[in-house]
Every structure is written in C-alpha cells, then in structure tokens.
Design a protein around this nucleic acid. Structure first.
Length: 285
DNA sequence: AATCCCCGCAACCGCAGAACT
DNA sequence: TAGTTCTGCGGTTGCGGGGAT
C-alpha cells in the first residue's frame, strides 16, 4: 500500500538541532506530552518533521536518558543480549534503562563488534593478525586506551567522544575484552551490577547534561556532576530543572504514555528476573 | 604547521507493522 | 475488511574532532 511521506519536506529544517529547537520541543512535551508526533512540530512551532522530533526526544532530550560512556557491565550485557537477540536494538535497549537503541547500536558498531571480531581472530588464527585498519590505527587505539585510563576527565572541549574522553567508571574497548567469555557466575554478577547501577542511579542523573550541539557535553561518569560549562542557560531558561523534579516527572511521563521511566524500570526488573536463567545459558553458546 | 585519515555520534531514510477509520 | 495513517525500528550516512603522518 502506498505510503505518504513522513512530512512535507518543503521548508523543514534538517540536520543538527539548535538549542532553541530543543527548548521548544522539551517545553512542548513537558506541557502536552506527545500524543501525536506528526502534529507536534506544527503545534510546537518547530520546522521539523514529527519523525525528527521524536528521534530527538527519544535519543537526546528525554529526561530519563542516561548519558556518558557505557560501563563495562553495560557493554558486557549488550554483548550477551546481542548474542541472544541479534540486532534487536530496541529489545536490547529495554534491558538497559536510560540507554537508547540508537546509542547501543552506535556502541555496538563502533566498539563491541570490532572487539568481538578481534577476539574471534585471536581465537581462530592466533598470534599476529593483519590489522584491518591502517597500521597507524593500532597505535592510535593503544594510545586512546591509554588516554582513557590515564586522563579520565581530561576530555577535550567540543563534541563528546567515548573513545577519546572516557570517564572514570567507563570501560574501554580493550578493558573488558577478556570479560566477554566469562563464567556463568560472572554473568550473574555482571548483570546484577548492571541492574544495580540502573536501579539506583538513572533517575537521579537525568539532568546531568543537556547535550546540545552548540555546547557539547564532556564525557563523565554517571556518578559525576556535569561540567559547569554545560548549557546552564538552557536549563534555567526552560524550567527544565523543574521538570526534572521526580514528582513532576512522573506526572509528565505518565502523560507521555506507557513508556514511562517507572514502568520501564518495573519491566526491566521483571525481565531481568525472568531471564536470569536464560542469561546463564547464553554463556554456553 | 599542514594535511590526511579514522572514529564516534547524531540524524536521516525507508520499511514493517500496529492503530485507526 | 480494506485502506490509510502513524509509530517504531534497524540500517546507513554525514559531520566534526582529534590523532597520525
């Protein structure tokens, strides 16, 4: 059947979002929720298509987004879930509260997949393996790993980069490489610790940053405060801080629909409990 | 110092299926 | 029940930063 374009392309903005647009979107959703993405941009006064608004909200502006680099526990969990679920990023993301499918997908393609490939090569061929990248890459990767461990908060200004500005609690690709084929008890521990991290933390550091392109956030661990430089004006000007009040947020989230952070949490814990046995089995694969 | 190359990330695109009429 | 609309998902791309040469 025919399919209408998601939006009339004429006159709509594309590309990176401005702080004003973010502001509008957040403010609108805070007040009205998002019952209809298609109509939202018009009603919010945004020159974007609904799809773009949705993506921006889901992947970036949603208050329950947990940002910062992935912990080794999270990476491990992703690897395991990917083994069982395949490229079902949304399903994987459902097990990692605060993480988006897009983010997980990116991490998979940039870090984890490479890591697994390397491991397979190491196991299969052993010894020296030809680098898929140029020779300089090995150097730069090692250097990056070193940077990560040596200068956790020495992130350079500008865009965030998990590889170049990893936080203290965040793993590097190499760091957790050996952990992938860990024992079943280790699995449980990893899952459990991941759960603890999510269960306790992710609601409370939601306001860590407002990652706006104009003032990209530094990378930092989930336990740290965001750098002072982060777009404070945005939070104050839009009363987003007020939105982050938990009580208020619950209200907002319930308004926003079934995917509230609270229900996600419940679902997460239920699934975790149910799947704990399955996860053990995965290690046998 | 300049240029090249690679990486990470946000955003876009198109499809599939659910929801609605 | 069929047609249409909307949402969600997965794959892909383009941009900007930073390290290497």
């Amino acid at each position: 059947m025919g399919r209408a374009p998601c939006c009339e392309k004429e006159g709509l903005r594309r590309g990176a979002w401005s702080s004003e647009e973010d502001e509008r979107l957040v403010e609108y959703i805070r007040r009205h929720g998002h019952p209809n993405w298609r109509a939202l941009p018009k009603q919010a006064g945004l020159l974007r298509c609904g799809k773009s608004c949705r993506l921006r909200w889901i992947n970036y502006l949603r208050p329950d987004i947990k940002r910062g680099n992935f912990t080794s526990d999270e990476e491990e969990l992703i690897v395991r879930l990917h083994q069982s679920l395949g490229n079902k990023w949304s399903a994987i993301a459902a097990q990692l509260p605060g993480r988006t499918d897009n983010e997980i997908k990116n991490v998979w393609h940039t870090h984890l997949k490479k890591r697994l490939d390397d491991e397979r090569k190491a196991v299969g061929g052993g010894g020296l393996q030809p680098q898929t990248r140029k020779k300089s890459k090995a150097k730069s990767t090692a250097a990056a790993a070193e940077r990560e461990t040596a200068t956790p908060s020495a992130a350079s200004p500008g865009r965030s980069s998990s590889a170049t500005s990893s936080g203290v609690t965040c793993s590097t690709v190499t760091e957790s490489a050996a952990a992938v084929s860990s024992s079943s008890s280790a699995d449980q521990a990893a899952i459990t610790s991941a759960c603890h991290g999510h269960g306790h933390g992710h609601h409370h550091h939601q306001q860590q940053e407002h990652p706006h392109p104009a003032v990209k956030e530094e990378s930092f661990s989930s336990a740290e405060q965001p750098p002072a430089a982060i777009d404070e004006s945005f939070w104050s000007s839009t009363d987003v801080a007020g939105m982050m009040d938990l009580g208020d947020m619950d209200e907002e989230l319930s308004l926003a629909g079934p995917s509230s952070a609270r229900s996600e949490d419940m679902e997460f814990w239920l699934k975790m409990l149910l799947e704990a046995g399955d996860m053990r089995d995965l290690t046998v694969l």
